[in-house]
Design a protein around this nucleic acid. Structure first.
Lengths: 228, 228
DNA sequence: ACATTTGATATGTCCTACATAAGGGCTTAT
DNA sequence: ATAAGCCCTTATGTAGGACATATCAAATGT
């Protein structure tokens, strides 16, 4: 696996610290003891002593887990295991400016893939109400200037994600939006598929899932045409 | 947006600490100054003083950024901005045991969506060599006992991701695998679509993209049938 | 029985000290 | 004069102690 080789080669750049080790050990500990969310954890001093590190180092590791939402702490009550917000942690590193070009492109493609695969969920869960709302969004965009068109574009596709009935997916899309926009504006051709939003709405109303997939493909074709 | 309401309601469980604030401020600082990977950062003492916090608190915040791979530190050289591994951070919280049931289901669906949308990338980038390798994997599975069949199943679908030519996607799939398995084994019906792996390979050889999408849909149908 | 106060305790924050590694400049040898 | 080797400086890594603060729980008073 080329990926693993790479990470192996690149790993020793920064020497590992005690906090790194403690973080891993804590994670293993939580898993091994099969703690469940809400369970109380030992106190800092006990953990520090058990691990043979200063409270300082331990707290650096705990701080990391706390950031990920894996634990929560209160003044006297101590620490409890919590449910991390898996997307919240992801969001912290999603900045177009610090992501390398290849990964940006990968994420751009990831959104396209999601958008295409969405059809299968949408056709399981779409309701008439959803379609009506979608149509309203599409109708509005007829006479809008450019800045508002972008907002409407986002609203339309966002509604599609919403219609998937999958909250995680919807949030994921919101997070990916800035990256997508960034890549699109890098290449400055205007992108306009042969199928527009109103067409898609019509297909949703009367067409089959296969029709919708074809429509989506046509709608996104300008983006796919950039791939190589 | 119901999601935001929820997170707003749930937020004040854990009181925010200085480290939380400093983490945000540091992130803003890095963005505002538009540092680029490799750029040197001020020393800990300077940052601590500028922020009006102890070196201890600052280090807790730095420890978080270091975990995310946003910064790297060396003994005398100081700190430099680095490129975070966006998926590495994600991986840390992807444990089926601590993710709530709804999110698990969402992730399960996410993988299905990816797998369906993959076709559009595969048909841009597939090569004869890829298809030959895929066929080899499919051939092997004819006479395998159950435990090996699962491994082969993973190999086959993994190869499909690989054929997308998108490393991020491929790694993403690897991370999602445990979750997917977990959900599948929760419901214990054996899942077998009408289209098997060899069928898919044949379609890839001679069929159109639409054919492949149909085939994929039939292959994954048992999974989709569970959705509601 | 209920409300209030008081004390104990675990986390949050700060400070100081020292270890360690690495860069920079200095000396020395060829 | 150049290169090698040494020492000094410096920024991060780790340790330990001290106090603030919030909160639970028990003791107290009505």
């Amino acid at each position: 696996m080329a990926i693993n080789d790479l990470s192996k080669d690149l790993a020793p750049i920064a020497s590992i610290t005690m906090a790194d080790v403690v973080e891993v050990k804590l994670r293993e500990y939580l898993k091994k003891k099969s703690f469940l969310p809400g369970d109380a954890l030992p106190k800092e001093l006990e953990l520090a002593e058990a691990l043979g590190v200063s409270r300082n180092v331990l707290r650096e590791a705990l701080s990391r887990l706390r950031m990920l939402g894996m634990i929560e702490t209160k003044k006297k009550r101590g620490m409890v295991l919590a449910r991390p917000d898996i997307l919240g942690t992801f969001e912290r590193v999603l900045d177009p400016l610090i992501i390398d070009k290849e990964t940006l492109q990968d994420i751009f493609e990831l959104r396209l893939v999601l958008e295409m695969g969405l059809a299968d969920l949408i056709y399981v869960r779409k309701t008439d109400k959803d379609i009506a709302e979608l149509e309203n969004i599409a109708k509005k965009e007829v006479n809008l200037d450019n800045s508002f068109r972008i907002k409407n574009e986002i609203a339309f596709h966002g509604k599609l994600y919403e219609m998937s009935g999958n909250d995680t997916l919807k949030r994921f899309q919101i997070m990916l939006l800035p990256i997508f926009d960034y890549v699109v504006t890098l290449e400055k051709k205007p992108t306009r598929g042969k199928i527009n939003h109103m067409d898609l709405v019509q297909i949703l109303k009367t067409g089959s899932k296969a029709d919708f997939k074809k429509g989506m493909e046509a709608h996104l074709k300008p983006h796919f045409d950039r791939l190589k």
